[in-house]
Each structure stands twice: as structure tokens, then as C-alpha cells.
């Protein structure tokens, strides 16, 4: 479990996060949602330690991550896998080399063991047989899956995903969402997804935190979204007139 307690972050005089406290549970897909500029990416970067909060603490289990020094953080970071918005794959390395990179860097496995692990992860994300392709030779959805394979290759306890659906068509987005959800449940890990994709919210939102202008506006799960009368949540989820009509029909029926 990861806990953020009273997180504040300012850039100069601009306060981007204004005292956010939230809990992210093990074995669940935890979603950070909100409109562009709500502070989701900053929150995610604070949680993984790419940025330091101006105030507040981040706890990994019983460990205050924000109080650790660089070397102590390194140990926790090897339990973290992250899928980046732009995938952050190394262009000059093949799919296999990209996924194998953390194994090469941090383990003393034999070549065969590494290859077996890489193939297992590629198989897990349904990319078996694409070992020798370069990131530039595969589609955006496949690149996302390579990113996921690389993120899980060291069997992390925590998985962070920054906008995993950006740039993908709705069908591929659902495939990626399902994949992340399966991995979360199968490996019993804490997954935090930063998204503004409504489909993700309704499909995999076990624990949802809505950020609005740097503040926590709503917390709940996907089954509570429909019934909630939080205006900010409704404005965000049911942004189009079509979706608003659908929601009205749903509420009327129920």
C-alpha cells in the first residue's frame, strides 16, 4: 500500500498540489483522474520520487519514502515498475533488449534465465515472437505493451502508469487496461494509473481519486461513479452531452 499525506508542491509561486492525502491499495488498480493541468502527473512523479514535495510525506508500506536518502530510495525503486506516457523505450535497443535491460543492470541471472524471463513477460503482454524488432518498427499499442513488459520484468511490488491510453484507439486502450488489471491482480501489486480516459475509469477503477486544480475533489470506485452527485466528477466523467443523456437515463431507470 502507498499513502500520500498532505502533499503540497509549488513551482515558484504556483502551488500545483494543495495538500493531497490519498491511499493506494495493494491488489487494486488505483486511478488518479482529472482534467489536464489538475496535477496528476506531478502527483505521480512525487509518488515515485522523481520530484520532491514542498510539504507532506509519501509512505511505501511502513517506510517514509520522502525521508530516505538516495541509496535507500534506490532499494525501493527496484520494487517499482513504471509505464511512461511516451513509453520511454530505448530506440537503439530491440524489444528483447529493452525488456532485458533491468535484468542486465540489476540481476546476476544467466543469459538463459534472462531470456526465459523476457520471453515470459513478452508472452504475458501477448508480444511473443517480437523479440528482435525495434521500437520504431512496432505500433503504439505494441510499444505500450513492451513498456509494460519492461515494467514488470523485475516483478515489482508497485506499478505506476502515466496515461497508459494516450494516443491509442479505444479498442487498444481497453486491451491495455485489461492487461494492467490482470497483472495487478495476478501479482497482487499496488498499481497507480494516471489517466483522463473515461473508459479506464469505468472498467478498471477499483479506487479512484479525482484531482481538481491541485485538490482532491472525490474518492470512490467505479460502481460509485454513476450515483455520485459530485458535480466535478460528473463534469469530468460525463463531459459530452451524449454521455450526460446516458447518465440521466441510467439514473432514471435505477
Amino acid at each position: 500500500m502507498i499513502r500520500a499525506i498532505d502533499i503540497r508542491k509549488s513551482f515558484g509561486s504556483n502551488e500545483v498540489l494543495k495538500g493531497i492525502s490519498a491511499e493506494f491499495y495493494q491488489g487494486k488498480t488505483n486511478l488518479l483522474i482529472g482534467r489536464s493541468g489538475a496535477g496528476k502527473t506531478v502527483m505521480l512523479k512525487l509518488l515515485v520520487g522523481l520530484m520532491k514535495p514542498t510539504e507532506g510525506t509519501v509512505w511505501y508500506g511502513d517506510t517514509d519514502f520522502t525521508a530516505l536518502n538516495k541509496h535507500q530510495k534506490k532499494a525501493i525503486r527496484q520494487d517499482i515498475g513504471m509505464l511512461f506516457q511516451g513509453n520511454a523505450l530505448f530506440d537503439s535497443l530491440t524489444v528483447e533488449e529493452n525488456v532485458r535491460f533491468p535484468l542486465d543492470m540489476f540481476t546476476k541471472m544467466t543469459k538463459k534465465e534472462k531470456l526465459d524471463r523476457v520471453n515470459f513477460c513478452l508472452d504475458r503482454v501477448t508480444l511473443a515472437g517480437n523479440n528482435h524488432k525495434y521500437p520504431g518498427e512496432i505500433s503504439g499499442g505494441m510499444q505500450k505493451r513492451v513498456g509494460i513488459a519492461r515494467a514488470i520484468v523485475l516483478e515489482p511490488k508497485y506499478l505506476f502508469c502515466d496515461e497508459p491510453n494516450s494516443g491509442l484507439d479505444p479498442k487498444t486502450s481497453i486491451v491495455i487496461d485489461e492487461l494492467i488489471r490482470e497483472i495487478t491482480i495476478d501479482n497482487n501489486i499496488t498499481t497507480i494509473i494516471n489517466t483522463h480516459d473515461m473508459n479506464s475509469v469505468m472498467e478498471i477503477g477499483d479506487n479512484i481519486a479525482l484531482l481538481h486544480l491541485g485538490e482532491l475533489a472525490w474518492v470512490g470506485n467505479k460502481s460509485e461513479v454513476m450515483e455520485s452527485d459530485n458535480q466535478l466528477l460528473q463534469d469530468f466523467i460525463f463531459a459530452s452531452p451524449f454521455l450526460q443523456r446516458l447518465r440521466r437515463q441510467f439514473v432514471d431507470k435505477s
Binding site: M82, F84, Q85, G86, A88
Partner: peptide
């Protein structure tokens, strides 16, 4: 710019 340095840092490199 492609967040590859961030990716390395998250891995603990």
C-alpha cells in the same frame, strides 16, 4: 525529453 532518463532513474540506475 523522451523520459528515458526518468525511466532509468525509476529503475534505480
Amino acid at each position: 525529453q523522451k523520459e528515458q532518463i526518468d525511466a532509468l532513474e525509476i529503475m534505480g540506475v
